[in-house]
Nucleic acid binder design. Structure first.
Lengths: 137, 137
DNA sequence: TGGACTGTGACGTGGCGTCAGCGTCA
DNA sequence: ATGACGCTGACGCCACGTCACAGTCC
């Protein structure tokens, strides 16, 4: 486990996040989450930053962002932490735009929940014995 | 409009539901929503039942059902309305199973909303001028 | 040495979007 | 006859799932 000097294999990352191996590899393919290095034999080795990125990605997923969009958010978040003050300020502006987008998506998600609730009620009505009184047993 | 004897074209159905033409045609392709007939020239002509089916489908979508699953639900709902009492009872059992599934999905959707809420708060904190407190980690 | 783990292609899937090119309808 | 509308392929897309087969790690 820690036999790689604090680094994680794909399997470790998978266990710690719940994501499939395929997803993790795909995230590398599209440049979303990169391993720090490869073992001599070619195994991916990830650092803690990668774990954090994956966890953030999983938090964004309910809002139905594309991987591209999430990549942009992650990049902006990284930039905000930069020393360079002007770059950080610029990144903060980007983040503000994303935050607005997040608000929209959040409202949209709430609407979906409400629609789901309605359907649930409707289906219940259809299933239950249409009688006014419950035929107890 | 009513020039087809109360029937709707694909475009009409699209306008009344908000779905794309492509989606409506796809639903026919997979046998989910069928037109009553075709015009002499090959245009799809839908009845009111089709509209109701589409509207129900749109209510189920937030729960992330597949088209196959929705088809099963629609079929069961149709069967419940049958005269044949035993068939209707059987259909009601099927619906009860679906209702349980809906409950699960509904809970799952609520969890997603909560995750989204957390992310939203987290991003806000990141964006706002990090006022009096220390830099978050 | 073995056995668990990981790697790389490559293909498949769902639910459409998006053309092009042509036919239909009032 | 003229637009607006509709039709049928066909291909593209995203975010993976799911093989098969080979190599790696301890």
């Amino acid at each position: 486990m820690a036999s790689h000097g604090g680094l994680m294999t794909t399997g470790d990352l998978s266990v710690r996040t719940g994501l499939s191996l395929r997803s993790i590899r795909y995230y590398e393919e599209v440049g979303l989450v990169l391993p720090i290095e490869r073992s001599p034999g070619g195994h991916r080795l990830y650092g803690d930053a990668a774990l954090q990125r994956v966890l953030l990605i999983m938090k964004m997923k309910p809002l139905d962002f594309t991987l591209d969009e999430m990549g942009a958010v992650l990049t902006a978040l990284d930039e905000v932490r930069l020393e360079d003050a002007s770059a950080a300020t610029q990144a903060r502006e980007k983040l503000a735009m994303f935050a607005a987008l997040v608000e929209q998506r959040y409202e949209w998600l709430k609407e979906r929940l409400q629609i789901a609730e309605e359907f649930r009620a409707q289906l219940r009505a259809e299933v239950e014995p249409t009688q006014p009184r419950a035929p107890r047993r």
